[in-house]
Simulated scan of single mutants.
Amino acid sequence: MKQTSVTTNAPCWTELGTSDPAAARAFYTELFGWQADDTARPGDEDYTQMLVGGAPAAAITPRYAPQQPIAWTVCIAVADADATAVRIKESGGQIRKDPTDVFDFGRFSVAADPSGAVFILWQGRAFKGAGVFDEPGSLGWVELLTRDPSGALDFYPAVFGWSVAPSEHYPQWGLDGQDFGGLLTMDDRFPPQVGPHWLPYFAVADVDNTVGRAAALGGDVPMPATGVPGGRRIAVLRDPQGAAFGVYTAGAEG
């Protein structure tokens, strides 16, 4: 992610909803060197911010409903959650949870694109989002995996004003000349039960070392470390509870 601070209409945060928050905190603390802060959101002690060098990097929470999948969810900063929710519905998307205040921290809404990929709108107030980007242990890239690439390429620019760097294999999302993510078309390699989703990538100093540590900590490696055009080395991992996430070389252009 070339952005270095929270930018309106760009990814600003990511949250893990999991069946075992304590185990997840232990896994990611060992993997990324995160520090847990259970006091960051008074009144919601189940919500744990994970810090990198004292700066908020991500959050780990329990699942809020039995049907909620164990997964990371990408949050997008918006100036007005209510107005953005209207644009989402007008563009063919869904609002799964109407805009709601979270104390004085901000206002959020759970949304889905027309194919069903879920994301969160975050209208920051006291809390804007991540305090660090593209540094080891922090959010570095976001990727939409979908079986409807043409629909996604219509929907997200209409809602958020994103630019698209065209590519036959991997279009990239951007805003104000800064790319922050990509689109991967799901093909026969993806089982039918795996639905469209957003995947966060965390920057790391050494992808191969991180893959080895994740496996030693009980995680899985759906996609081993590999080099990609643009100087990046990436991998996709799964934590012991089953949540998928990516890692990539911190600071590498792509």
Rank of each mutant, 00 (worst) to 15 (best):
Y201K: 00
F160P: 01
P166F: 08
F155A: 04
L184F: 15
G195A: 13
G177H: 10
P200L: 02
D134H: 03
S167F: 04
A130E: 01
E143A: 03
D148I: 09
W198G: 04
P191G: 01
G181F: 08
A203Q: 09
H169L: 13
G137D: 05
L183I: 12
A216P: 09
D206E: 06
F160M: 09
A126E: 15
Y201H: 03
F133N: 00
G218M: 07
T185W: 04
F155W: 09
L153G: 07
G218P: 15
V207G: 11
P166V: 04
W198Y: 06
S150R: 11
G182A: 12
G129A: 00
P192D: 14
Y201A: 01
G161D: 08
L184R: 13
A165F: 12
A216C: 06
R147V: 11
W141N: 02
L139W: 07
D187T: 12
F202Y: 15
D134G: 03
F202C: 09
A203L: 13
P157R: 02
G195M: 10
V207A: 11
G151Y: 04
P149E: 03
F190V: 15
V132E: 01
R125C: 01
A130D: 00
T185V: 13
E168Q: 12
G140R: 04
P200C: 06
L175N: 01
A165T: 15
P191M: 04
G129P: 01
G181T: 05
H197R: 05
A214T: 10
G181I: 09
F155R: 04
P136N: 02
G181R: 07
K128C: 03
D148M: 11
A216S: 14
G195C: 03
E168F: 03
L184W: 13
Q172R: 15
G140N: 06
S150N: 12
L199P: 05
D179P: 06
G181K: 06
G182D: 05
S167A: 13
D187W: 08
V159L: 04
P136M: 02
W162H: 08
G129Y: 01
G129D: 00
L199Y: 08
V204W: 08
D148S: 14
V204S: 09
S138E: 07
G161F: 11
Q172S: 11
G181C: 03
P157N: 02
